[in-house]
Each structure stands twice: as C-alpha cells, then as structure tokens.
C-alpha cells in the first residue's frame, strides 16, 4: 500500500485518520517571507518557503537548503517562467501547491488561480520539476484526504499518476534525502 504524506498538516492525528502516514513535524520549517531578505533556511530541517512574488520565487530557488517553493503563483501573480523552473530543477527545489488557496479564494479569484496554476504546470511539465501537493490549512476542517488532494491535480492539468506521485514519492524523497 502506498504511503501518503502531507508536509503541512495542522493536525497530525487527524491526518493519520484521513489516511496519511505520520511525519515528524519538528523537522519542518515553514517561512512566509515578505521580501527576498527574509528567506533564512535552517540547516537539518525541511525548509518550505511560500512564494507568490517574482523576487521571492527567484531568491527561494537560488538559496541553499530550500526544499519546497510553495505557491509560486496565486490568483494575483501568475508569472512563473522557465528560468525559475530551471533553477529549481538544478537546486532540487520542489514546487508546492497548497489546497488551502483554492478554498480561501473567492469564486472570481479561483478562476484566475486555476488559470495561473495550469500555466505553471505546463512549465513544470516541460522542465520536469518535482511537484508537491499539501493541504496547508489553518484548521482541522481545511484538511483533505490523500485521494481528494489527487482530485485537485485533475483541475490544474496533472495526470492521476503525477498527482499521486506529488503526495507520496516526492515528499518521501524530500524526507529521505534532506534529513
């Protein structure tokens, strides 16, 4: 049976009930930088940087010890170019997509968000970047079961296997290699 991992689950016990495997939360360092200077990854930890700005995205994929660049695009900002994708590939930075952004976005914002994510997925498919899907919710009811997160992949242009890979093998490899 495949093991599924949610790197940013707010409630680990509930995540296990939903079907995720247990992870060591203390190893995860989540940073929401306001500018490129705020990106200060810690050693021996899985550093997840929230993007959403051109300078932050570029700085995050260049910096050492960054493992995941979460949400490089959002409903307002949709520029994700091949230069950033290439740099991410070179430095082994996975591209993260959080499910919470879909829930938090209003109806009109969700349209733009999906369009931007579909464009980003086209670029990541071309460059062959690793993709991670996380819930990143604030509360228990924002979390989703593993195969429901796979459904999100269908909306943004990932195949079923790619989406399953994004919640199983990619997070597993991040844990194995980086820690």
């Amino acid at each position: 049976m495949t093991d599924y991992y949610d790197l940013l689950a707010p409630d680990q016990e509930f995540a296990e009930k939903l079907g995720f495997s247990k992870i060591d939360v203390s190893k995860i360092n989540y940073i929401e930088p306001r500018s490129g200077n705020d990106i200060k990854p810690q050693k021996n930890k899985i550093n997840i940087i929230r993007g959403g700005d051109e300078k932050i995205n570029q700085e995050a994929v260049r910096t050492r010890n960054v493992h995941v660049l979460l949400d490089p695009v959002n409903w307002e900002f949709g520029k994700f170019d091949t230069a950033t994708a290439n740099m991410a590939k070179k430095n082994n930075v996975a591209i993260g997509i959080s499910h919470a952004t879909f829930i938090e976005a209003k109806e009109s914002q969700r349209v733009k968000l999906m369009l931007n994510l579909q464009r980003m997925v086209k670029v990541t498919n071309k460059i062959k970047n690793s993709i991670v899907i996380v819930s990143n919710s604030k509360g228990k009811y924002g979390m989703r079961a593993p195969l429901d997160l796979v459904g999100i992949g269908a909306f943004i242009g990932l195949t079923e296997n790619q989406a399953k890979w994004a919640i199983s093998e990619v997070p597993k490899s991040i844990f194995e290699v980086k820690t």
Partner: peptide, 11 residues
C-alpha cells in the same frame, strides 16, 4: 477525479 476535486473544494 474531476468529481473528487470538486468535492474536495467544499468547505
């Protein structure tokens, strides 16, 4: 998978 995606967006 489309239906799974739709139901996962229900909050």
């Amino acid at each position: 998978y489309i239906v799974k995606g739709v139901t996962s967006m229900l909050a």
